[in-house]
Design a protein around this nucleic acid. Sequence first.
DNA 1: ACATGAACACAATGTTCATGT
DNA 2: ACATGAACATTGTGTTCATGT
Lengths: 124, 124
Amino acid sequence: MGEKRTPSGFLLKQRAFLKLYLITLTEQERLYGLKILDLLRQEFKPYGYRPNHSEVYKALHDLIEDGILQQVKRKKEGMKYQEVVYYRFADGGYEKAKRYKRQLKAELDRCAALIRKAIEDNFS
Amino acid sequence: MGEKRTPSGFLLKQRAFLKLYLITLTEQERLYGLKILDLLRQEFKPYGYRPNHSEVYKALHDLIEDGILQQVKRKKEGMKYQEVVYYRFADGGYEKAKRYKRQLKAELDRCAALIRKAIEDNFS
DNA sequence: ACATGAACACAATGTTCATGT
DNA sequence: ACATGAACATTGTGTTCATGT
C-alpha cells in the first residue's frame, strides 16, 4: 500500500539542481522570480537548457518549506506600485543551505562520474 | 488539446542512457534481459545507480520499435527447456544504432558540461 | 526459482489558467 | 505587459501482477 518509492539513483533531478542555484544566487544578489528565470535561461542557453517559470517557483517554494529561504515583498526598483517577491535566508536557513549545498556537491560529483563512465564505456 | 510537450533540455533521461548501453552490449556479447540487468547493476553499483528490470525491458522494446534491435529466442545455455530472449541488430539496425550513438555522445557531452558548470558556478 | 512482459501507480515536470499590479 | 502562483496534463519511471519455463 503506502510504500515509499525508492529512486533508482540515476541522475539528479532538475528541481534539486535549481534549488542549488537559487541558494547561490541568494548568497550573491537580490533577485525575484522572473528575473532569476531570465538569468538562468541566459546562463544555460549555450547548454540547451531552458527552465520554465513553474519549476523556478516550485524550487523557491521548496526552499521555503525546507526552512532555508523566506520571502521579502518589496516594491520593484523604480516602480511605484508593483510589488515583487525577493528572497533572503530564513533564521538558521544559511546553515541549512550550506548543508544542502554540501549534499548537492556530492550528487554532482557522482553524476559527473556516471556520465564520464558512460562516455568511456560506450565510446572507446 | 493534443499539444506537444517541449522538453526543457535538462539532463538526459534514464531510458536513453540505457538504450545506449544496450546497443553497446549488443555489439559485444550476446546476453538476455535479466543477465543484462545483473551486469548493469554491478557496473553501476559504485555509482549509486541501480536500474530496475522494467526500465531495461522498456529500453529493449524501444530499440526494437526504433528498428535497431530484433529478438532471437533461444534455449538458455545448458538448459533444456527454458527459452530466453537474446538480441541482435535488425536489418539496417546497425546503421541506425551508430546514428543513435552519435546523438547520445553529443547529449552526454552536453550533460557533462552542464554539470561541470554547476560545480563551477556553485562551488568556487 | 528465473524470465519476460504488461498493468498500474506515483513522481517529475511542462502547460495553462487565475489573479493582481 | 509583467509577476506570482495554482491547477491541470503528460511523461518518466518504480512497483506489482500475470504468465510461462
